[in-house]
């Protein structure tokens, strides 16, 4: 007699078997709906990039791909375009806004989570949410009419006392200080405070209570506990929050367009009148642009799209790496 089946089985290497997956009709419909939603969002990202790329081609051909990114000119009549200055200007404004916003946002998050009494906490939380929902045109107008005068005072103080730092110098002693990158950056900072605050607040609230209590039980002050336990715990999430804010600041349009004294050239004198960003270029030039200039504006939009994408990818990479380390 041949080998019996158990013996045969023992000789054969086992492979994973099929598992029957029966899906109910409701489940199948719902899954299709969710999958379509996912497909739509992918399509929007891909479609936008494709649209920008195609429409940008004429201007990029005319101006030359290299010189579009390495010069600072805007001359629609001869078809000469270059956005280097505006790319730098965009980063300058976003950096100023981060420098102002990060300490504010983290201080606010820590105050809400660690110091404020329950009643004030509720009020603060909802006003931060309200701030996030405020249209940027409101910030822009408020910044233009109400904030400029006091900020000019701050700017001249910074110039007077901290001119050892190159960024706080002026091109000439009596250069005008209104409508500067500094003022714009500060207004944009107020717009990105809510997102940084609420994300880092959520992250720090995740810190296990036992860790905080351990720090306090060792005789630590609240500040000691924040420094040794909360901030190290929230490091990755806070970095992510900051980069999210940076991404928003890069793309902020209307408040910048309203306040800045627009220049194509990059202006390294942050406190001084004049500056620009890609988004404000588009907002300012678009209403009257035609043909090739429209294509050039779209090319500028593509550059901004790429920059924001890079920042976001960078943010993800940093967050992921710190998560693994922790």
């Amino acid at each position: 007699m041949a080998l019996t089946s158990p013996e045969l089985q023992a000789l054969e290497e086992q492979v994973p078997r099929d598992i029957a997956r029966t899906v109910t009709r409701g489940d199948r419909i719902f899954r299709t709906l969710c999958a379509s939603a996912a497909a739509v969002s992918l399509f929007i990202i891909g479609g936008t990039a494709l649209f920008l790329a195609i429409k940008a081609v004429p201007a990029l051909q005319k101006a030359g791909l290299l010189s579009f990114f390495t010069t600072s000119v805007w001359n629609p009549t001869v078809g000469d375009f270059g956005v280097l200055g505006l790319l730098i200007g965009t980063i300058i404004i976003a950096t100023v806004s981060l420098i102002v916003a990060v300490p504010l946002a983290i201080g606010l998050a820590l105050f809400i989570n660690e110091y404020s009494p329950a009643r004030i906490r509720r009020i603060l939380t909802s006003s931060v949410d309200l701030l996030a929902a405020m249209p940027s045109i409101i910030f822009g107008m408020w910044g233009f009419f109400a904030l400029q005068a006091p900020l000019v005072g701050v700017a001249s103080w910074l110039n007077l006392h901290l001119s050892a730092i190159p960024f706080f110098r002026l091109s000439e002693p009596d250069a005008p200080l209104l409508r500067s990158s500094f003022i714009v950056g500060t207004v944009v900072a107020l717009m990105i405070v809510p997102i940084i605050t609420s994300v880092s607040r959520d992250v720090m609230a995740q810190c296990p209570r036992s860790q905080c209590e351990a720090a306090l039980a060792l005789g630590g002050s609240r500040w000691g506990m924040i420094k040794e336990v909360l901030l190290p715990f929230g490091k990755a999430g806070i970095t992510g929050a900051i980069l999210l804010g940076f991404g928003r600041a890069l793309g902020e349009t209307i408040a910048v367009a309203l306040i800045i004294a627009f220049t194509i050239e990059a202006n390294p004198y942050v406190l001084e009148q004049g500056g620009g960003s890609i988004a404000s270029l588009i907002a300012i030039k678009f209403p009257e642009a035609q043909d090739l200039e429209i294509s050039a504006l779209i090319a500028a939009g593509l550059a901004l799209f790429g920059m924001t994408l890079l920042v976001n990818l960078g943010a993800r990479a940093i967050v992921r790496r710190t998560q693994i380390a922790a």
């Binding site: 296990p208 036992s210 860790q211 209590e213 351990a214 720090a215 306090l216 039980a217 060792l218 005789g219 630590g220 040794e228 336990v229 190290p232 715990f233 922790a326």
Partner: peptide, 16 residues
């Protein structure tokens, strides 16, 4: 708290 120390029910060393 620095004169009267405490050890908790669940071990809670600082993970970082």
């Amino acid at each position: 708290r620095s004169r009267i120390g405490m050890v908790f029910q669940k071990p809670n060393p600082f993970p970082a």
